[in-house]
């Protein structure tokens, strides 16, 4: 079976992404030092989600692979969220 030609990502792209990831990390840390009350965790998790989408799409090549992979990843994330939500359905209503 032939192996289709692979996309070559330039070194620069990785360095840009790294800079972005570090910036996001530092933002996240700084924001938690300022008291944002209940929002702190939400913001930290949103930033984490943005960071992971970078890692998934660029570092893990999802952006350049067969669409099947990204769909499966999204599916798994949704599944896990659904399981957490259903479990919390019990705890939030006790």
């Amino acid at each position: 079976m032939e192996n289709e030609k692979n996309h070559i990502i330039p070194y620069k792209t990785f360095l840009y992404v790294l800079a972005g990831l570090i910036a996001l990390t530092l933002t996240s840390v700084t924001l938690t030092q300022i008291s944002l009350g209940a929002m702190t965790v939400t913001i930290a998790l949103i930033i984490a989600a943005v960071k992971s989408s970078f890692v998934l799409s660029i570092f893990m090549h999802l952006k350049f692979e067969n669409k099947m992979f990204s769909r499966a990843v999204i599916g798994v994330i949704l599944l896990l969220s659904a399981v957490i939500a259903i479990t919390l359905l019990d705890y939030l209503n006790r």
């Binding site: 599944l79 659904a82 399981v83 259903i86 359905l89 019990d90 705890y91 939030l92 209503n93 006790r94």
Partner: peptide, 17 residues
């Protein structure tokens, strides 16, 4: 995947669950 709770009907889950 989402129906596991029916093994726990008598375990003391919340009503909504």
């Amino acid at each position: 995947y989402f129906i596991w709770g029916h093994h726990m009907f008598t375990s003391g889950m919340s009503g909504t669950a």
